[in-house]
Simulated assay, not measured.
Amino acid sequence: MPQRPFKQVDVFTAVPYLGNPVAVVLDGRGLTAEQMQSFTNWTNLSEATFVLPPEHPDADYKLRIFCPGRELPFAGHPTLGSCHAWLEAGGRPKAGHVVQECGVGLVKIRRDGDRLAFAAPPLRKGGPLADADLDLIARGLGVPRSDIVAHAWCDNGPNWRGVMLRDAAQVLALRPDAAVLAGLDVGVVGPRGKVGVVGARSGADDCAFEVRAFFPGNNGMAEDPVTGSLNAALAQWLIGTGLAPERYVAAQGTALGRAGRVHVERDAAGEIWIGGASATCIDGRVQV
């Protein structure tokens, strides 16, 4: 079993261990999907990625993204963490942007000073949630239905459903009921019924929003520390409907003792970019 170059990268933070980690195998050639999945499950992280030679002529590399139990067509923090690892290992883009090939197609990644940012992929599904979904979400979050002040489908690969609460304090105080939200997964969520929550954040820091993300995990409901795909879809919804400015910073991971910061910007061409810092925590070789 060969040794392969490997990095573990903490994403959406410049300070190691305050963001969301991803395992990056920098040479996934020759590995089967089963081997990639087995390694991902072993890492006990939310995602692991495998860098491969590109198949599309415009791509710099191909990325396969796995979470426990399944492969994902796209995920945000693995995209940024893998690009960080690829560049750190000597990768050079063909053009001004890095172009990642993955399950949703080609994703552009740009450098913003000491941060990387990806162009939000198109939403696969948008628009308001059904009343029955909202009733379940409100009950599962333990909030009155009237405290959900806005809502939308936020499906950009992962099937996020987004709801906006009244303020950040209410978001941070949530104690979700896994049994109630698990019912949502069975009927209307795929894969695995993820629910995203965003609320306006007030305070002296630079953050406009507080974000949390809940989804069914291996042992009940899990919470993701910092979620690029969700923040990308939230930005498309919130900016598109005037609920957020064209440039803002969202905080995520506070409730888990993390300090994730997601930088959001809609550029002059209308494209939305999701960025953040990354920090390499482990650099070496791994046997896969």
Rank of each mutant, 00 (worst) to 15 (best):
P158F: 10
R139M: 06
R111V: 11
A204L: 12
L87Q: 14
G199K: 13
A179D: 15
G183Y: 04
N159W: 11
A204W: 10
D114R: 15
D206W: 03
C83Q: 05
L141I: 05
A117D: 11
D206Y: 01
G81M: 04
D185F: 13
C83R: 03
G199Y: 08
E88F: 10
G90R: 12
P93K: 02
A168N: 04
N159F: 14
G203A: 09
A169S: 11
I137S: 05
A120C: 03
A95I: 01
D112A: 13
I137H: 06
D177G: 10
D205A: 14
A182S: 14
V195Y: 09
S82Q: 00
V149L: 05
A168F: 00
G142Y: 07
V211H: 07
L184T: 09
I137G: 02
G96H: 00
G157W: 01
A89K: 10
R192E: 12
V163Y: 07
L123Y: 04
A117P: 08
H97G: 02
D155L: 07
A208R: 14
R145Q: 04
A204T: 13
G193C: 00
V180M: 12
A179P: 09
D135G: 08
L129Q: 08
G103I: 11
A168K: 06
W160I: 03
L184W: 12
P122T: 02
A85M: 12
P144A: 09
S82R: 01
P122V: 00
A173S: 09
P93G: 01
V189D: 06
F209S: 09
A152L: 05
R212I: 08
